[in-house]
Design a protein around this nucleic acid. Structure first.
Lengths: 213, 213
DNA sequence: AGGCTAATGACAGCCACTGACAATTGACAA
DNA sequence: TTGTCAATTGTCAGTGGCTGTCATTAGCCT
């Protein structure tokens, strides 16, 4: 005769194991490098078998991006909730800037924010991780393109504009990521500012001539 | 001392081995899938040891992109040789369109062009390959950004415009790649036309409002 | 308490990839 | 032509990511 514990002991235990694996994984990745960290080390650090690690994560890579996925989910949701009177690129811009403001608390519920930022840097510096990151970005772009198309009442497979708009936007974000990865010690506020600066650069880029003399 | 004698028996033999490995690899990839093809199978198909395969290619992935790299190299070269009076995006556009016209002969010297096109489709459909492809694109983008910056006499680390321009361009190309991958049976001419169409869509995308009613 | 089921560990095996060393084979000069 | 040198290759052993299988453990429910 137990009060209906919505979250059984089982569920809580699973959650704790997953969190522990994630934290240990990111900690090891960021301190000794992604390639130089074995799954056995991670599992050992949480005192579970290697097999258990693979029951929680599809692979090493999956653990590396578990936190990033929070950011992606949040961004897509933000785009969905933008007022309909905003133009597409305006909505994307506002959504990403809003994201920089709220990402902190969202991430902090799983791992320290500092760990997340270090992981981002590592991604930029590790070829295998960068490749995976770009592919995930590509998937998010497709999802966002569908959202934009729906906002504008367009068919994403007929009208090229939604996908092109998102591609342009994603490209600029990517440039910003690269820049951030290259410069040591830029925090979230600087990131926000950089994003705005780079998005503002899109207009001038399309001008015919850049040279003034 | 003859400097011309690049054609030692040794050199020719090596070249033949490499070509054979490449052809067999792509043939197997495109017929039975990338993941379902083992390096042992490829090596066996050329009658060399697995170890030898890894002496010619850094990995399975490397073989999959050996041909694509020809296209990349050619594109970068084309951008470099564009007349200086063309605006940045104009130069990129012309370079890529010119690339579609000449890619055929360049590729055909190594593998049948049809094999290359099938490989491109496979890349789009195989997550691991798509990730690697996007990373390589990213590298090319950085290289091209430096070329554009030099053309315009700008410092690529100070002025955001070269990288942003290339990112916008690369984004549009990516959208086109995805579209091409989704539609069966589009050949090179259609690809060329699609590229032009999508590049033309960039301007309208930046307009404030898309909805006309 | 005892049966049911989900979570785990232990083990075997596949595949990509690497280092080391010995065998082979083209290149080149005596 | 032959012997020496260096490049190419094969063999073998080993590491690490990842999966299937099966027995064991541990939460849950009556």
């Amino acid at each position: 005769m137990n009060t209906v514990t919505r979250s059984g002991l089982r569920e809580r235990k699973k959650q704790r194991t997953r969190d522990a694996l994630l934290r240990v994984a990111l900690e090891l990745f960021t301190t000794q490098g992604y390639e130089d960290t074995t799954v056995d080390e991670i599992a050992e650090g949480v005192d579970v078998s290697q097999r258990t690690f693979f029951r929680y994560f599809a692979g090493k890579e999956d653990a590396a991006f578990a936190v990033q996925e929070i950011a992606h989910t949040q961004f897509v949701a933000a785009v969905r909730e933008r007022p309909l009177d905003e133009a597409p690129l305006e909505a994307l811009r506002n959504a990403v800037l809003e994201g920089w403001d709220t990402i902190g608390e969202a991430v902090e519920q799983v791992v320290p924010i500092d760990l997340y930022l270090r992981m981002c840097r590592l991604t930029e510096a590790t070829p295998a991780l960068l490749a995976a990151h770009l592919r995930r970005n590509d998937e998010v772009a497709e999802e966002v393109a569908r959202v934009i198309a729906e906002r504008e009442g367009l068919d994403v497979d007929t009208d090229p504009r939604p996908r092109v708009a998102v591609a342009v936007f994603a490209g600029v974000i990517r440039v910003m990521e690269r820049l951030w990865g290259a410069n040591e010690g830029l925090g979230l506020p600087e990131l926000r500012a950089l994003t705005a600066t780079y998005l503002d650069a899109v207009g001038p880029v399309l001008a015919e001539k850049w040279r003034t003399e």
